[in-house]
């Protein structure tokens, strides 16, 4: 079994295992929705070396696009989801086109600025977005004879889309395009000198990431029946990035781990201690200092430590961009 198949199998196992071990279909759906968003973020961070704070824009736009379509038209659910993905892709293309003109910290600053810009757009145009109150009353229509009203029925729908999206992202990552992204991340100048259209590759990565994040945002709006302003806030970008980093940016399945860990642990910790975000902050410090490959890296180490694992040690095809300066170019 090759590595891509193994990771897909693991993702499928997660989708199957969640209903068996969780009592809330809503929470399980949220795990997979954020897993999609984190995997899309990983395509930029892990594969292209772009630390984007713009993911919240695409997530929020996806929520609004699906919500507005379902509220104001009689178009079916599938069309609303496609429109959300298109909205994410189109805006991501624009944001990417402008942001990648700068590198390093200036690129990060630009994505942050766009994040604020779109937040205030959503906040200001309250007649369209509902402003601070959010876009309310978003329906969750049936698909043909299949009602999605029950939380587990909706989970099944989300899980199906999650596996399709995961497989598609894996296909992208393992294609020539994906390998070229790695080359761009590791040495942009060399990739350009060889003749790769670096700029186009980065914009395409942004567009794909935006489409998937937009779709995740749409599914989230359908899950809770509202597109809140917080979906397009800077904090949403931050949360998606944290999930990606905690999971590890080495491969796409690591993002699924990161999202699952973040969503479930946040839910648990919030009942134990009101200042649970401090614990999450502490965890991020630990990840940054000692686990630069995230949870996936930890699993790799554990597997290697096992007698069987020493013989067939897993080695990630790509290195995390979050590593010492000498080992990679980083952002």
């Amino acid at each position: 079994m090759n590595r891509a198949s193994l990771h897909f199998l693991l993702a499928a196992l997660v989708a199957i295992a969640l209903p068996l071990f969780m009592r809330s279909g809503t929470l399980a759906s949220e795990v997979l929705i954020f897993a999609m968003a984190a995997a899309a973020c990983n395509l930029l961070l892990g594969y292209t070396g772009l630390l984007s704070f713009g993911q919240g824009i695409f997530f929020g736009l996806g929520s609004y696009a699906a919500g507005l379509t379902l509220l104001h038209t009689s178009l079916p659910l599938g069309v609303a989801l496609v429109l959300a993905a298109i909205a994410g892709a189109v805006v991501a293309t624009g944001v990417g086109w402008l942001s990648i003109r700068r590198q390093g910290v200036y690129f990060v600053m630009l994505t942050l600025a766009f994040s604020q810009f779109f937040y205030f757009l959503a906040y200001t145009f309250k007649d369209i977005t509902g402003g601070d109150n959010g876009l309310l009353n978003i329906p969750r229509p049936a698909i043909g004879p299949f009602s999605l009203g029950d939380s587990w029925a909706y989970y099944a729908f989300v899980a199906m889309l999650f596996l399709i999206v995961f497989a598609a992202l894996q296909r992208v990552a393992s294609s020539t395009f994906g390998c070229t992204l790695l080359a761009v991340r590791d040495n942009e100048e060399r990739a350009r000198a060889i003749g790769f259209p670096v700029r186009n590759f980065k914009i395409t990565a942004f567009a794909i990431s935006g489409a998937v994040t937009g779709l995740a945002g749409a599914l989230h709006a359908l899950l809770i029946g509202v597109a809140p302003l917080s979906n397009i806030e800077y904090h949403m970008s931050e949360s998606i990035l944290i999930m990606t980093i905690i999971g590890g940016s080495g491969n796409l399945f690591a993002s699924v781990l990161g999202a699952g860990f973040y969503v479930i642990v946040s839910d648990l910790l919030s009942s134990i201690w009101p200042r649970w975000l401090l614990l999450l902050g502490g965890l991020l410090i630990v990840v940054a200092l000692f686990m630069q490959k995230g949870l996936w890296g930890l699993i790799e180490r554990l597997v290697v430590a096992l007698p069987m694992g020493r013989r067939s040690a897993i080695k990630s095809p790509i290195e995390s961009p979050i590593q010492p300066e000498s080992e990679g170019r980083g952002i």
Binding site: T26, L27, G134, I224
Partner: peptide, 8 residues
């Protein structure tokens, strides 16, 4: 304090 979390 988050609508999404509250609804979920």
């Amino acid at each position: 304090g988050k609508p999404a979390t509250a609804v979920r």
